[in-house]
Design a protein around this nucleic acid. Structure first.
Lengths: 178, 178
DNA sequence: AAAAATTATTTTAAGCCTGAAATGTTTTTG
DNA sequence: CAAAAACATTTCAGGCTTAAAATAATTTTT
């Protein structure tokens, strides 16, 4: 048997996981979060396919466009959805073919494309959105209102932490480029 | 101006969001969780590519195989990773080509394929896993130990809720098939 | 104003991922 | 024991996704 160096007392005092270099708790947290996200995503994907014969990327894209009356550029959508430009181009192509989205160059700046929901697109989306909201509520039904609030708050902190860590790393590498 | 029917008092008493049919809180919670997951996933993907020239699906697959000495079947991996069988087949093919994974039919049951990490695969994975754990810790650095615990617990409740909701729906549709 | 830099989008090549159909194997059933 | 059912995996067609290169338009610089 191996002796854990000299940390018998230390372990007892620190309730584990303050051993230097140990980050198992964070890892377990991430894996659990990933499990939840995947379960929800898969379920929503399935229901969208079964009930509306559509896909999650299409739904998400339409959801963005539904938030505006004046339309959105490709770049704007790609940023909000956190996907690449090329991806937006591809998904939009399908939606245009199906008459759900309208795409036209902006009159002032011919580089940008303005995307809007068509009347039909808006109608179709609204119907899906209502169902979607119900599905999400169903999935979270095991949580009470206080838990939902707490979770929301903690995920807010997490989001802040992530942004800081990711931005920090970008700055870091930019320093070396100077 | 529109009058919100007769719920002025009700709204005040229920602090909003107990209006019938309203589930905006759940929806906001889900979107925030999705944002966190996406941020983490994208960042890990980027770092795996930059530092190890590999992809997240490959890393995840190797992570499963690292948990066992006797190997795992395709179905087992696909279940744990929550992806399709076909997907595992495809990703494994790449890893076999690169000499990181070994794949051979089980001697007793020639339907199943046993997947194991090669010696090299195990070595490569261990190196990546150590870095990976550090990255995750970095990303969650803005949260204290109590927050991590709380979040972990709440996500546990969420997982239970999801399983119940998803299983419930399967039972429901099975009833109609009888 | 021509050249260079910047910005927005599209294209391309490669890999991931899925559901459904097909294949090969084992187990169950009549 | 042969036929049928069940099981594990692979193949297939189609869509998603990305990074990087290419294209096109605008703005800045010289």
């Amino acid at each position: 048997m191996e002796m854990p160096s000299s940390s018998l007392i230390l372990d007892r005092e620190t309730k584990a996981s303050e051993r230097p270099g140990d980050h198992k708790d964070e890892l377990r947290l991430w894996l659990r979060m990933l499990t939840c996200s995947t379960l929800i995503e898969t379920e929503i994907r399935n229901r969208l396919r079964e009930e509306f014969k559509t896909t999650l990327p299409r739904f998400d894209l339409m959801a963005q466009l539904d938030k505006t009356v004046v339309g959105m550029t490709v770049g704007e959508v790609s940023q909000r959805l956190m996907v690449s430009n090329g991806n937006v181009t591809a998904v939009v192509a399908g939606l245009v073919t199906d008459g759900l989205v309208d795409k036209r160059p902006a009159p002032q700046d011919r580089r940008v494309q303005i995307l809007t929901l068509t009347a039909q697109g808006r109608k179709v989306f609204r119907a899906m959105a209502e169902r979607h909201e119900g599905w999400i509520a169903e999935l979270f039904a095991g949580l009470g209102q206080p838990e939902i609030g707490q979770l929301f708050r903690l995920l807010g902190q997490t989001k802040t932490s992530l942004h800081r860590a990711i931005a920090g790393r970008v700055d870091e590498s930019a320093k070396g480029d100077a």
